[in-house]
Design a protein around this nucleic acid. Structure first.
Ligand SMILES: NC(=O)c1ccc[n+]([C@@H]2O[C@H](COP(=O)([O-])OP(=O)(O)OC[C@H]3O[C@@H](n4cnc5c(N)ncnc54)[C@H](O)[C@@H]3O)[C@@H](O)[C@H]2O)c1
Ligand SMILES: NC(=O)c1ccc[n+]([C@@H]2O[C@H](COP(=O)([O-])OP(=O)(O)OC[C@H]3O[C@@H](n4cnc5c(N)ncnc54)[C@H](O)[C@@H]3O)[C@@H](O)[C@H]2O)c1
Lengths: 218, 218
DNA sequence: TATTCTTTGTGATATATTTAACAGAACATC
DNA sequence: GATGTTCTGTTAAATATATCACAAAGAATA
């Protein structure tokens, strides 16, 4: 739970996993060094932004050389707590929930969905991938027992708030919410919304209303 | 394809579908008027931000009264092209693709996945929801035939780039990319990435490194 | 009608993020 | 070891976004 000396900008924090993933690719290709320009091309982030992002953590590179892949990878592994597993619960084993369980973010080796919950009796007692599905009645008990503090929410919107209330009672610290509902939680709980219907609609809006500018065409 | 007088900030554009959805809820509850403060509570966006967002479109409200739900709804319906259907193709009918097909963003009544593509012979020829699945060999032909210019990409990462190249050839204008691959496209094509593994990892990073601040606790 | 209350729309300001540009450190080569 | 080249780290500037705070318009009330 190391705290940075100086707070990293949120925009930077959101890019860290992306950098990490790409560094892993480079590493498995046996690459020794990489420049901010190469990274930029690969992850589609401006090279100055990458250098600035890295610089929040100190001087990780060498002038005239670039960055050492192994060193950088080791650094990010620690920074992103890659050696510590965060156990996640998934609530709502429907279309989206089942897709997540099958996928289970296997390539993130620091996060794993450990347990699923649903009210549907045909799902309770089964397992998807190797993740067991329990009934909602056992939510609090199981979460506390397993010490799980992160939940992915993929239930119908109308039940999202009451379920969130139970999650809070079960001592959860964060909810990754895929439902359209906007959740009320105490201020100590973090909620991120990923609202796929909004994403699609705003994408279509951008397509229609934001034609590529002259500048972008250069 | 109406172009705004003054360009709407992107951050505003991303919130529009959210406002629209909530206004629809209010409307179906029979509510006549709404203030920026009420909207704020419901969509969890600062009320000043909401007023500023709306003000880009002119003076939509009345001082001392708020906003008329019907009027606002009608306004956003036009602005978000709710009366014009955007047909979407989905490439890769796997875990995630199947979830999207079953859901099919039914409540967005301006977008619909019309057609799916895969290479898996056991899927080709079937339909999910009412969406027919075709073989990738027919990609270009079908897309052009149906006049589809938006694609959702849910294929394995290694094939994402070559498939994107075919999509570009088939005259696609936008790709909503769920794969971890960063796509190279000509500048006239818009790509949005939704990288769920990155979302989960950065969420976990925030939980560990950004404890709720004093300010947020007030 | 007069008075009070509510709530918008926006100027001003604060905060966050991106990008340009370049001095200088270190590498590579001869 | 001198010279030219590469590429970082960072200062400065630009851009983007969010929030404060309040005048004034209009609603509500009496
Ligand atoms: N599937 C998508 O592509 C998609 C896209 C955008 C948003 N969403 C949102 O994600 C959420 C899930 O979507 P879905 O398509 O997977 O829905 P779904 O209906 O397939 O799955 C919902 C699951 O939640 C379970 N459930 C219902 N009530 C419950 C309760 N009280 N406690 C626990 N589990 C309960 C159901 O049994 C079901 O298994 C919805 O809110 C939806 O709006 C889904
Ligand atoms: N499922 C998730 O929860 C999840 C989460 C994060 C990211 N992703 C990403 O989304 C993508 C899809 O994930 P998934 O879990 O649905 O995978 P999946 O393997 O279940 O589905 C991929 C589908 O693409 C099809 N396919 C393979 N090659 C193809 C080709 N050349 N042309 C057309 N179709 C082809 C396969 O037949 C399969 O149906 C992957 O890139 C994955 O990394 C998925």
């Amino acid at each position: 739970m190391a705290q940075e000396q100086v707070k990293i900008p949120q925009a930077t924090a959101r890019r860290l996993p992306l950098y990490y993933r790409f560094l892993n690719n480079l590493h498995s290709q046996g690459k020794q060094r990489v420049s901010s320009a190469e990274l930029s091309e690969a992850v589609k982030v401006d090279s100055a932004t990458i250098r600035r992002d890295f610089s929040y953590f100190g001087a990780l590179g060498k002038k005239g050389y670039g960055y050492n892949v192994n060193y950088l990878l080791g650094f990010f592994r620690k920074t992103l707590d890659q050696d510590e597993l965060t156990k996640v619960a998934l609530i709502g084993v429907g279309n989206l929930g089942t897709a997540f369980l099958n996928y289970n973010f296997l390539k993130n080796n620091n996060t794993k969905i450990e347990i699923g919950f649903d009210v549907d009796e045909s799902k309770v007692g089964t397992a998807i991938g190797d993740v067991p599905i329990y009934h909602m009645d056992e939510l609090q008990e199981k979460l506390i027992e397993e010490g799980i503090t992160v939940a992915i929410l993929t239930v119908p919107a109308p039940v999202a708030q009451p379920i969130t209330d139970s999650l809070v009672e079960a001592n959860i610290k964060g909810v990754l919410n895929f439902t359209p509902a906007r959740l009320n939680v105490p201020p100590s709980i973090r909620v991120h919304h990923i609202d796929l219907a909004v994403e699609l609609q705003s994408f279509v809006y951008f397509l229609k209303h934001y034609p590529i500018t002259e500048k972008e065409l250069l």
